[in-house]
């Protein structure tokens, strides 16, 4: 564009200056904001660890009458920069359903993620947050329970030496389907 054109079109020159000022201003602010956003979104790159069978208890630590007992789940864990070879990562209820059969229930309520309590006198589980009630096997006990699904059960392996292994996983809360949180 020539000088002559410039002076004959002051409106156009003015517009170009304004556009350039706004454009450059936008670009310069977008760089730090963009860099920050990329780092902010970093957690989306990380998936939860796939469930693995972890040794949780032994057969003879479980009551014969099928009363559930709560056990911590110990596993290795990477928490951002820290690596723990052995740390408690959650808890399960285990109960005997046969001489060599065990049911494992995740202690987390499928409604909103609270830790459900076992109530020995009523032989059921009660969520302390929104009063969801679950039967011994984890089924919804009370039609008015807010939980969308029964308590989450997990795969169990009982070894010859009586060790109870649980495939420990966490599941997405608040939905009808049982989907592994990843």
């Amino acid at each position: 564009m020539s000088e002559a054109n410039d002076s004959s079109q002051p409106g156009r020159r003015d517009f170009l200056i304004k556009a350039a000022a706004v454009g450059i201003g936008a670009v310069t602010t977008l760089v730090p904001a963009g860099a920050g956003l990329v780092t902010l979104l970093d957690p989306l790159r990380h998936k939860a660890k796939a469930g693995r069978f972890l040794r949780v208890a032994t057969l003879n630590s479980l009551p014969e009458d099928g009363t559930p007992r709560q056990f911590p789940v110990v596993s290795e864990r990477q928490d951002a920069w820290n690596k723990y070879p052995e740390v408690r990562v959650g808890a399960v209820y285990l109960r005997k359903t046969g001489p060599k059969e065990v049911q494992a229930i995740n202690v987390v309520c499928p409604h909103a993620g609270c830790f459900v309590n076992y109530q020995p006198d009523q032989r059921n589980y009660l969520c302390p947050c929104h009063n969801s009630r679950f039967a011994l096997d984890g089924a919804i006990k009370d039609a008015s329970s807010p939980s969308p699904r029964p308590l989450d059960t997990m795969e169990v392996k009982v070894e010859a030496d009586g060790a109870v292994l649980v495939k420990f996983e966490n599941y997405r809360a608040g939905i009808h389907e049982k989907i592994v949180a990843s």
Binding site: A35, G36, V38, T39, L41, D42, R45, A80, W81
Partner: peptide, 8 residues
């Protein structure tokens, strides 16, 4: 370790 962390 974080995406773009060094740049930020």
């Amino acid at each position: 370790e974080m995406a773009g962390g060094w740049f930020l």
